[in-house]
Design a protein around this nucleic acid. Sequence first.
DNA 1: CACTTAACTTAAAATAACCTTAAAAGCATG
DNA 2: CATGCTTTTAAGGTTATTTTAAGTTAAGTG
Lengths: 226, 226
Amino acid sequence: MRILVIEDEVRLCEALVQILKKHNYTVDSDTDGESGLDDALSGIYDVVVLDIMLPKIDGITILKKIRSEGIDVPVILLTAKDSIHDKVTGLDSGADDYLTKPFNTEELLARIRALGRRRGEIIEPDALSFGDISLDTQTMRLTGRGGDISLTLKECELLEYLIIHKDVIASKEQIIEKLWGFDSDAEANHVEVYVSFLRKKLRHVHSDIKINAVRGVGYKLRKGGE
Amino acid sequence: MRILVIEDEVRLCEALVQILKKHNYTVDSDTDGESGLDDALSGIYDVVVLDIMLPKIDGITILKKIRSEGIDVPVILLTAKDSIHDKVTGLDSGADDYLTKPFNTEELLARIRALGRRRGEIIEPDALSFGDISLDTQTMRLTGRGGDISLTLKECELLEYLIIHKDVIASKEQIIEKLWGFDSDAEANHVEVYVSFLRKKLRHVHSDIKINAVRGVGYKLRKGGE
DNA sequence: CACTTAACTTAAAATAACCTTAAAAGCATG
DNA sequence: CATGCTTTTAAGGTTATTTTAAGTTAAGTG
């Protein structure tokens, strides 16, 4: 997952890069329209985050050029103000989404994920992380502070689900639906078994992450110091 | 935090209401444009979730009417397809955000929270609270002025019921019906036992909330200075 | 004030949820 | 078709929660 950020405000640009990298995306950036356009035309990116107001070449022009070259990478426009005009022009020119400054991290990340879903592709970061562990869903490897280990498909899916839903308690029903499908006859014990497998592997990589069972409700990840 | 959902697909509508309620929002809903508009014009909502395709009056018309009445409640549009046209029309008409079906819970919740932040207000779920306590029904944790503690399922349901019905005296029969179901053979003593459990936990978090027994009638919460 | 009844509290029993492990079954690969 | 790996099944053990039950306290009533 490669993201290109084109934004001339240096501080904002760096902040964006840092945030995205933190979430395990691969990120490049430009601070002017000219080099931004060059990079965008390379066609190697999965998402472009594009400011409208840019030195040398403005965002809308870049967007039009990209599209006229037949590159249909998802583009998220950054509009300086709450200017409907920019939005409309941007969407007309082939943008997939816009974001009004100031915006926050969560929102940007949500939109990037949403873009992936909308196109039916999966624009996901290659690795998820939580506390002292990191999960590479591509290679299905779990890395902790004391080594790494490979997971089976179901283990990986379960941990992925728990990390993505780290803020809520994931019920067994939800987990079953996700891992075995909506009308499977999988039982609660399936989940319990995999939770048990995962806990063992978490210990194996010396992570201090715990899978907390909330009786009658579901499971929730917990970091060491909580 | 009051949310209005206007959506004609009954199943989707109910699902939305349930999900939002589960996250401690107060939710009303309509399944056609006419009653939807009526409710929206009341101006009491903090967010409106509005489907575009609706019987009687379509979403865009509703949106325009709302705005022409000077109500600037945040509106999230639900667009049936990936139709840029709908988005642009919607944004022109004064929508704050849109969501393309199908979408998932997380995304909707994120957008609702994001809307609040963007406007600088705090559109947060009412973490069910009363006096000096606050109850998170998601994690089943009770927080008081001197720490927090986890509740069991029944304890949580009981306290939730008491808080929601804080203005009236909750009878044991009502409580039994809510916690154990309509035709259970649960007895009055069950309620008494759980009231006792709760009182102990309220003391544990140093709350000054009291569960008042009204002889022959039921229970009612009371704040410290009452 | 004595009596009755409702409510309170607590401990112990029963139940249901969850955990773990081992073994069987399924599946792909060489 | 044998091997190794993943997934499912199943059983027994552990613990948290719910229910039962019994003794105690408090409130209302004549």
